[in-house]
C-alpha cells in the first residue's frame, strides 16, 4: 500500500474549481516533484494533504488513514506529516531552540530536559547547530528555511511536504537549502515537493507530476517526462523553464 493515496480529489474555492479529479499515489521513500504553471493548483494540493484545506470530494489517505479537515486524529496525523512553506513561517517571538522544541514538548514526545538535545540533533542535520540560541530575525533566509526544516524533523515525520521552499531566497542561498533536502532524500525520507528548480527535480525526484489547470496532466519518472513529454502543455512548460 502506498504511503499517500489521493483519489479523485476535487477542491473549489467558492465557484472556482482549483483541483479537478486529482489522483496520485506516493510510495514510501519516493521523492515526488510537482511542477506546473502558477495557479495550476500545486500549493492547494499540498495543503489538502495535511488538511490545511478541506477537500470537496474524493479521498486522501496517509498510511491507510483517511484525511479529513474535522477528523479526530488530525493532530496526530499532522505530527507525521511535516510541511515547509515558501515564507518559512518561523515563530518570530521564539528562539530557534524553542521553535524546534515547541511541538515535541507540547505533544509529549520529549521531556523539557531532552528537548535541547533534540533541537541540537535536528539543527545539526541542517548544519545550523551554532544558531540554537538565535532569534529567527537574526538569520538569513536560507538559514531560516533550514530551521523550518529542522522544526519539522523534530516531529520525526513519515512524510515531508515542501512548497516552493527556495522561491523566496536570494539565488546564492538556494543551494544550502536544496542540499539539506538532498540529504533527507538520500536518507529515505518520503517527500512531496513543489519546485521551480528543474535541475533539482531532474536529479533527485523519483517521479515528476505536471499539473495543469487543476489536473494531473502528466506524470512519470524525470527521464521520461523531461526528454519525452507527451502533451503540448508540458512541452511548452519545459520550454519556458529551459533558460534557468
Amino acid at each position: 500500500m502506498a504511503l499517500v493515496e489521493i483519489n479523485n480529489v476535487h477542491k473549489s474555492f467558492g465557484a472556482v474549481e482549483v483541483l479537478k479529479d486529482v489522483s496520485l499515489s506516493v510510495e514510501e521513500g519516493e521523492i515526488v516533484t510537482i511542477i506546473g504553471r502558477s495557479g495550476s493548483g500545486k500549493s492547494t494540493l499540498l495543503r489538502c494533504i495535511n488538511a490545511l484545506e478541506p477537500i470537496n470530494s474524493g479521498r486522501i489517505t496517509i498510511e491507510g488513514q483517511q484525511v479529513a479537515a474535522g477528523m479526530r486524529n488530525l493532530k496526530e496525523l499532522r505530527q507525521r506529516v511535516g510541511i515547509v512553506f515558501q515564507a518559512f513561517n518561523l515563530f518570530p517571538h521564539l528562539k530557534v531552540e524553542r521553535n524546534i522544541t515547541l511541538a515535541p514538548t507540547l505533544t509529549g514526545r520529549v521531556s523539557k530536559r531532552e528537548a535541547r538535545a533534540l533541537a541540537l540533533e535536528c539543527l545539526t542535520k541542517v548544519g545550523l547547530a551554532e544558531k540554537i540560541d538565535a532569534f529567527p530575525e537574526q538569520l538569513s533566509g536560507g538559514q531560516q528555511q533550514r530551521v523550518a526544516i529542522a522544526r519539522c524533523l523534530a516531529m520525526r515525520p513519515h512524510l515531508m511536504l515542501f512548497d516552493e521552499v527556495t522561491s523566496a531566497l536570494d539565488p546564492e542561498l538556494v543551494g544550502e537549502v536544496l542540499k539539506v533536502m538532498e540529504d533527507m532524500a538520500r536518507q529515505g525520507m518520503t517527500m512531496i515537493l513543489v519546485t521551480h528548480e528543474m535541475n533539482f527535480a531532474r536529479n533527485v525526484a523519483s517521479k515528476i507530476v505536471f499539473m495543469h489547470q487543476g489536473r494531473v496532466w502528466e506524470e512519470g519518472p524525470p527521464s521520461k517526462l523531461f526528454t519525452n513529454p507527451q502533451t503540448p502543455e508540458l512541452k511548452a512548460f519545459i520550454g519556458s523553464t529551459r533558460h534557468n
Binding site: L90, A103, C152
Partner: peptide
C-alpha cells in the same frame, strides 16, 4: 500563516493560540 505553521505541527488549537499567537 502563523496559525497554519503551528497547526501543521500537530498541536491543538488552544496550544496554537497560547504559545504562538497570543505572545505576538
Amino acid at each position: 500563516t502563523q496559525w497554519e505553521a503551528a497547526a501543521s505541527l500537530g498541536i491543538s488549537r488552544w496550544q496554537q493560540f497560547r504559545y504562538v499567537i497570543a505572545p505576538q
